[in-house]
Design a binder for these strands. Structure first.
Length: 493
RNA sequence: GGCGCUAUGGUGCAACGGUUAGCACGCGGCCCUUUCAAGGCCGAAAUACGGGUUCGAUUCCCGUUAGCGCUACCA
């Protein structure tokens, strides 16, 4: 099998907003499919709608894809630069009779679903007027003389597709199976607007033919429009590709995910400190399953196992707690080396990287991250509660002080502990442990008292890694200094 | 209103005619423990409803209900 037989898929966002979760999942599935099959992923920007189009948003979409680790092989192509192709296709359809010129006013069709709503609401007569649809446009039967007359008047002209009035149209969907619809349900949809701008239906089909797309993987909201496109393909002399409609992503209230539901842009998750691979894993399992019970799947494994057959037909609710769980898994399970670049970026973002031991000593950095990561949930934790591991400038958390610095004996005890630790020549876990145990034995206090108080003195937090491991990572000088530095702060109590 | 799609615990998935209906998140409890996590164990929690088909339905068919989608000279 050569490259020519490999699948070609595309992700085709329109720059009318940021890259949202639903789009990201569509992009991901396309990417996974392409990689699994050894195929090609193209990126196409659907920017024909000059009104809603916001070119400046494109960078954000590309950045979102980049963060997700989704790389395309061709493009980006811009539909706004391919307008002649759509015009030519529309003219060809007009010439072949598959399309026809329509001189109706746009307003005749606009808001078609607003009209039928009267329904007197009487006491349950239940016999309201049936909604009427303009299935067939009257212009489809215009005789040549009439047409010429309108043309002479300069009446604005759109081009519509002459939908068949009988029979059925079918197409193959890898997720939903073979679909068939009655042609009488298909209206004479517009191909080219009277202002010369192509509709989605036209441009998407022309492009997918021209770009030799073999599999159209997109949201299930397009399922109902697909018959029109199948018709268009054939009218344009091409065989429709295989479609794969993926179920929609819903908010917790089971309505389509939208801004109302809070964070829906990919970039917001990046900023919040999620790891791209965790996000990918989570997203992949929203509407897809490898079968069986495995859930923690590294990206390479997902690529290996991804098939369209595994895609679900039911909409899925975006569950934030589960996303967070995936993030903790990816913060903890992979080799620590995988995590380092992300932690470094987080430290840089917080201004804690330059001049730090983390930047000067890679081995130390890996150790520190390894010690901290079991307790992290988001990348921000490394510069949040774990800040003291990377910088000497940190605060003593109020709750921690209240909880572990209550005892009056503490200043004296910690001073002695500092002295004892200062005397250690071979700084390691057991030596620190022994120094502290010896002191509590001599003083007749519980080890916990000193351990907890010392932890607060060293990292400013009640919630932190085990004390002696922390001491090893911090090093003798810092530990002794921090202990002594804390004494006057404790004393006032 | 019309057309279509879908329907397993609260959520995401598994079981593609035969299981005590499985896993995970979340939730509750216990254990571990020097804080907090992690980890281990236990628990509550589901096949929307009604008909068929079948020796046998979560699984196949029909209906009902519900949710969602489409029904634009938006994409």
């Amino acid at each position: 099998m050569n490259a020519a037989n490999k699948p070609r898929v595309r992700f085709a966002p329109s720059p009318t907003g940021y890259l949202h979760v639903g789009g990201a999942r569509t992009a991901l599935f396309n990417w996974l499919f392409a990689r699994h099959e050894g195929g090609t992923l193209l990126l196409r920007i659907e920017d024909t709608d000059a009104e809603r189009n916001r070119p400046e948003l494109l960078d954000g979409i590309l950045a979102g894809l980049k963060w997700l680790g989704i790389e395309w092989d061709e493009g980006p192509y811009f539909q706004s630069q391919r307008l002649e192709m759509y015009h030519a296709a529309a003219e060809r359809l007009l010439a072949s009779g598959a399309g026809f010129a329509c001189y109706c006013k746009a307003s005749v069709y606009a808001g078609a679903d607003a009209a039928p709503a009267d329904e007197q609401e009487g006491e349950g007569d239940g016999e309201g007027p049936k909604a009427k649809r303009n299935i067939a446009c009257p212009c489809r039967d215009l005789v040549e003389a009439e047409r010429a007359a309108r043309e002479r008047d300069g009446t604005p002209r759109a081009i519509r597709f002459r939908a068949p009035r009988t029979g059925v149209t079918s197409f193959e969907d890898a997720v939903f199976g073979r679909r068939e619809v009655q042609n009488e349900e298909i209206e004479d949809f517009v191909l080219l607007r009277s202002n010369g701008v192509p509709t989605y239906q036209l441009s998407v089909v022309v492009d997918d033919i021209d770009m030799r797309i073999t599999h159209v993987i997109r949201g299930a909201d397009h399922l109902s429009n697909t018959p029109k496109q199948a018709l268009l393909y054939r009218a344009l002399g091409a065989e429709p590709p295989i479609f794969a409609h993926v179920p929609l992503i819903l908010g917790p209230d089971r309505t389509r995910l939208s801004k109302r539901h809070g964070a829906t842009s990919v970039s917001s998750y990046a900023e919040e400190g999620f790891l791209p691979e965790a996000f990918r894993n989570f997203l992949a399992l929203l509407g897809w399953s490898p079968g069986g019970n495995s859930e923690f799947l590294r990206t390479t494994e997902i690529v290996e196992r991804f098939t369209l057959e595994g895609v679900s037909r039911t909409n899925a609710v975006f569950d934030r707690p589960k996303l967070e769980w995936f993030n903790t898994e990816y913060l903890q399970k992979p080799p620590v080396e995988d995590l380092l670049p992300y932690v470094q970026a987080e430290l840089e973002r917080a201004g804690l990287w330059n001049g730090s031991q983390a930047s000067a000593d890679p081995i130390w950095f890996a150790h520190a991250v390894d010690l901290i990561r079991p307790r992290t949930r988001l990348l921000g934790d490394f510069t949040g509660w774990a800040r003291a591991f990377f910088n000497d400038d940190f605060d003593y958390e109020a709750e921690a002080r209240a909880k572990f610095w209550k005892d009056d004996r503490l200043p004296a005890l910690l001073a002695k502990l500092a002295d004892g630790l200062a005397a250690i020549s071979d700084w390691n876990h057991d030596a620190c442990d022994a120094a502290l145990r010896g002191l509590v034995a001599a003083e007749g206090v519980k080890a916990g008292l000193l351990i907890n108080a010392a932890r607060v003195a060293l990292v400013g937090r009640a919630v932190a890694p085990p004390l002696f491991e922390t001491m090893v990572v911090l090093g003798k000088d810092r530990v002794v200094a921090r202990l002594r530095r804390a004494l006057p702060v404790i004393a006032p109590n």
